[in-house]
Structures are given as structure tokens and as C-alpha cells.
Nucleic acid binder design. Sequence first.
DNA 1: ACCCAGGTGGCCC
DNA 2: GGGCCACATGGG
Length: 208
Amino acid sequence: MTAQKRDDIKIGGNKILVLYKDLRKQYGKPEGQWTLWCKRPKTKLEKEKVIIGTILTQRTNWRNVELSFELMRKIGLKSLKDIYNLGGKNFNKFVQAIKPSGFYKIKAKYLFGVAEFFTKRKGEIRRDDLLNLKGVGKETADSILLYALEKPVFVIDEYTRRLVEKKKLAKNLSYDYLQRLFEKNIPRNWRLYQDFHALIVIDGKNKN
DNA sequence: ACCCAGGTGGCCC
DNA sequence: GGGCCACATGGG
């Protein structure tokens, strides 16, 4: 790591925690204010819905993802295992169901791979395992780890970058750097990470 | 008719 | 490591 990077992380210290407190003061508890991820999914089915949602919402409005969930529900697709067990003809129904979410052909393939992984996988799930899946990049992997598996991994997205830029908290806006910046300057706690990230998104959607 | 939305993989240099 | 492009829909 360069001296510049160390310096930024050091400088970020107070500012990062202050940012959280400010957002928390302005918006209150994020729970329930933004998609189902904020509801702290409890059941296995709810957690799997989060996992499916991380793929469907890539470059896509959450509203469209909800349309897809509704179509999936109508054809009886509730779990990752349901997706993994689809036969050829029914797989095409699944492809049509996720159509509203855009990039639907490729997302269908991605979701099948993800469903296969989670259906077969026994034991601890590592970040690298997720990153090896097609369609799962850093943000998606970390969203799954944080929101579905409740691991203390800070998620970086476009909203985070815009806010960091706006508040001039860092010049380097790369994924790895921003993740270190946040993780090194706030307590390592998945509930805090979820709330903080959710507040960043809520703030980003709040045009002002 | 534009523009946008929690990205990612495959190239290329 | 970074730049560019394809991937596609529904709503403003």
C-alpha cells in the first residue's frame, strides 16, 4: 500500500464514523425503508430471496426485480433449489419470469450457477468461492456475504462512490480501497455494516 | 425519444 | 491495473 493510501485511511477515521452518525440522525433506522434487504432476512427462504435479488438487481431498478419475483412466485419458484431443479422446458419459463429485470438471458444462466452452488455446497462459504461464480463480482459477492450470510463485509456500490466523492473522503474510488477505508474505520459488526450501507443507498436515492 | 437503475465478463492494451 | 463494450427491461 502506498503512503498516500495509508494517509487517506488514517484521515478517513473520524470522518467515516461521523458520516454514519449523520446519516443515522437524518434518516433514522434504515430497516424497512429500502427493499427487503433492510428487513434483516430471517428465514432460509428470505435469505435466498436476497441472494437471487443481488443478481437480478444488477444495473436494474428494484421495481423491475419485484415484477420478476412476482412472476417467479406464480410459477412456483421460491428457492434456489427450485431453480437448480428446473428442467429444460420449465427453465424457459424461469427465463421469461426474470425478463422484467433486464439482461435476462445471461442473468438466468448466472442464477442457475448460483443456485447450483448453494444447493450443493456444504460448510463455510468463502468470498473467493462466490467470486468464482459467473455473474458474481465483488459487489454481488459482498452483498450476499453481508445481507444473506451476515458476515462483516462492507459493500461498495455506486452510491458509496458518489457519497465519498461528494464528501471528499477519498480520491481513490476503487472497490478494494473504499472497502478498506470503511472497514478499517468502523467497528467490525455486520449489523452496523448493513445499516450503514443501507443509509448510504437511502441517502443516494434521496435527491437533494 | 431519450435517460436511468447496487454490475459483470470478455476483450484489449 | 484500467478502458470499452455487450447485456435488456420498465418507468420517468
